[in-house]
């Protein structure tokens, strides 16, 4: 006979626990099943979150419109003027008088193609070159592309929140004609292509 109450209590508890696992073995397996289902759910949540993060980051496109507009300006400046001298095709002589060539084709001369993949695209680009004398008097201008985009520049000026509007880059440089007369040339380049660059 065991007289010590503490020992008796421990023994009784042990026997009770053992008999519980002997008579109800399914309860333990059930708990394990619930935990494994829980882990599976957590695993799915984490995997889903990782997929969401990756698709969020890589799903949004890089906005390269400003870069594209700058590249177009470089291309145009390079064909209008080389090493500081204006393209000879920009001028025509009428009655021994030198004039700007109104038929100067910016696309052909500068090897530019404004066609895009989009079927409904009205015109994704606009280019304008304005010629001034040194007193800032406008002498001549040539332009190509969708002139409606020009209005976007005035709205979006200095505002970052209008990211769905066209991007405009405006730059100016100096060049000389064959008679060593200096001109200030202002080139405006506008790129829309919102669908490809903004989500």
């Amino acid at each position: 006979m065991i007289k010590n109450k503490k020992v008796k209590h421990i023994l009784r508890k042990g026997i009770k626990e053992i008999s519980h696992y002997v008579f109800f073995p399914k309860n333990r397996i059930g708990a394990e099943k619930i935990i494994s289902v829980y882990w599976f759910v957590i695993l799915i949540i984490i995997a889903g979150a990782v997929v969401a993060m990756v698709s969020l980051f890589y799903g949004s496109p890089y906005d390269v419109r400003v870069t594209e507009a700058n590249i177009m300006i470089n291309q145009v400046s390079n064909c209008l003027s080389q090493s500081g001298e204006l393209n000879k095709n920009l001028f025509i002589s009428e009655n021994s008088e030198k004039k700007f060539n109104e038929n100067f084709n910016l696309l052909e001369e500068c090897n530019l193609i404004f066609e895009t993949k989009f079927e409904n695209a009205v015109g994704e680009y606009f280019l304008e070159a304005e010629f001034y004398d040194l007193n800032n008097e406008r002498l001549f201008s040539i332009s190509e592309g969708n002139s409606n985009l020009k209005t976007d520049c005035k709205i979006a000026e200095g505002e970052k929140k209008y990211k769905r509007l066209s991007k405009c880059v405006d730059r100016e440089f100096y060049s000389l004609d064959s008679e060593n007369q200096a001109y200030k040339i202002n080139i405006l380049s506008v790129v829309r292509k919102t669908e490809k660059n903004v989500k």
Binding site: I73, S77, S81, G84, E85
Partner: peptide, 13 residues
């Protein structure tokens, strides 16, 4: 390129 164009014309004047 734009700046270089201006500089070339500056030195040619």
């Amino acid at each position: 390129i734009i700046m270089e164009e201006s500089l070339f014309s500056y030195f040619s004047i």
